[in-house]
Amino acid sequence: MSAFHIRAEQSRDISAIHDVTEAAFTGIEHSDGTEQDLVDKLRAAKALSLSLVAEADGEVIGHIAASEVLIGGGVQGWFGIGPVSVRPDKQQQGVGIALMGSALDQLRAEGAGGIVLLGDPGYYRRFGFEVVPGLVYPDAPAEFFMAVCLNAPAFPQGVVEYHSAFGG
């Protein structure tokens, strides 16, 4: 694979991000097929706290989004990652790892308390994510809801609320 680099989303990337996200989740068992629409809704609501793309040869080949979450009705400064998308023909080549690493670095530098996500524990543990008892995302299998502390002294407790775009 040719080299790729990670950069902030630009307005010219919006269509490509939509297409990459749709392609990345097509046929995935736990996907409802609306991840690309979620990114569009978060962007329209100005709720994308972080939106990075992986670019190779002038083409967007991957994307990662983060938006602020509220924990236990009051804890702020935490973010939810998702979706993370890599074009199917570029998967298993380090693109997703690079996107996640860049997102973690940027959110840490910006003072984020931590990050939550819903995903495969086998994949996300490498970044320090873990299941945290008492940190809950309703209607999701507990073993797939994980968090990592960045600047917070400890994990908060309570129900995690994502932006309303996640609800439909």
Rank of each mutant, 00 (worst) to 15 (best):
R43E: 10
P88N: 08
G111Y: 12
A45Y: 11
A147C: 14
S15V: 00
S2K: 13
T21R: 01
V148T: 06
E55T: 04
V159H: 14
L107V: 02
G119T: 07
G119V: 03
G122D: 14
R126S: 07
A147V: 05
L38W: 07
D32Q: 14
E68P: 09
A45M: 04
L42D: 05
P133M: 10
A24N: 07
I28M: 13
D37L: 02
D57I: 00
A44C: 08
I14W: 12
L150G: 08
A140K: 11
R12W: 11
G101K: 05
I17G: 01
Y123E: 10
I71W: 08
D120T: 03
E110Q: 08
V148M: 03
E130H: 15
R87H: 13
R12K: 10
M100T: 04
A23I: 00
V69E: 10
F145D: 09
K46R: 13
F127L: 01
A103G: 08
D105H: 10
F129N: 06
G114Y: 08
S31H: 13
I97S: 12
S15I: 00
G33Q: 14
E161M: 01
T26Y: 13
F4G: 03
S102Q: 13
I81Y: 12
A16D: 06
I81V: 09
K41E: 08
M1P: 15
A56E: 13
V84C: 10
A24G: 03
K90Y: 14
D57H: 11
I97F: 11
A24D: 10
S49R: 03
D89K: 07
A45P: 05
A142M: 11
E143F: 10
A152E: 11
Q92V: 01
A103M: 09
E110T: 01
P156Y: 13
A16S: 01
V75A: 09
S67F: 08
I6Q: 05
C149I: 02
I28D: 15
G33F: 14
Q76P: 04
V53Q: 03
G158P: 12
S67E: 14
G114K: 02
I6R: 03
G128C: 03
D57N: 14
A142H: 15
G58A: 04
G168F: 12
I97P: 04
E130F: 09
A112F: 06
D19R: 00
K90V: 00
N151D: 11
S51V: 00
V86R: 05
P153G: 06
A54K: 03
P83L: 02
